[in-house]
Nucleic acid binder design. Sequence first.
DNA 1: TCCTAGCCTTTACC
DNA 2: AGGTAAAGGCTAG
Length: 286
Amino acid sequence: MQLDVKFDLDFSLCCGQVFRWKKVGDWWYGVVGENVFKIRQCGCELEFDGIDEKVVKQYFGLNDDLEQIQRCISKDDYIKQALRRFEGLRIVRQVPWECLISFICATYKSIAAIELMLKKISIKFGEKKVFDGLDFYIFPTVEKLALASENGLRECGLGYRAKYVQATAKKIWDKKIDLEFLKSLPYLDTRKKLVEFPGVGLKVADCVSLFSLEKMEAFPVDVWVKRIVLKHYTDQLPEEFVKKLSSHDSLTNGEYEKVNAFGRSYFGAYAGYAQEYLFHHERTQR
DNA sequence: TCCTAGCCTTTACC
DNA sequence: AGGTAAAGGCTAG
């Protein structure tokens, strides 16, 4: 497929929004829903196997008007620097169920550790598929994790998160909750529904909203975003609040809401894009 | 209603 | 080898 829009596959898959992609040679292998496929990019040429073009466009956000998004969020020199450095990075449209479980697991974990947990969960509870002679695992169904034992999940290295994953899966299974439905709700309503799941606070809810539910204004605030705000955006916030933020390292819900609201009002409707560029930029300094 | 402190498991990296 | 930081959330007070 010939690309007629700006896109960078490596940036989009390496910026910490997805956890189950694997690069073999110059091909990226991934599992999306029930499909295993591979994809590679050479300049404007996007080559893939095992999947429809329509799904590729949808999954990698190729329908987003990235030029316009960049113009919208180019509010200062620092974000412009990040935008230039990672030109072509797009927000991927993940499967909501997998995204939800992924970010419940992500609390207090490094990205490498998250990848390992999800790999173990998939091998243990997911269906195996062979593609190109390699083994892949479909992400476990809701039923599988709803019926899994807390201990079975602990064996995947989840620690205290096992209970949350199990309870969230069980709630979705028992109440037959349709996560896709959340795409049709406004951002704040979506977030409100998400935090009702065990193990889901504002941060996880924002990640799931942004990465799988089309809420481009969601602005997840984690330790990195807090650092970014304190380093580059103190002039946009009241002095008292900045002092309070600096005085301790975790975030209270109230503080979270203030930083989140700042991000959304400052960057606008595509604050989530801004967050992802800033996050990746900050994490890959030095 | 809102805030704070203490606790929760495991992994990676220094 | 030992310590610390890691895309946080829950509960009690």
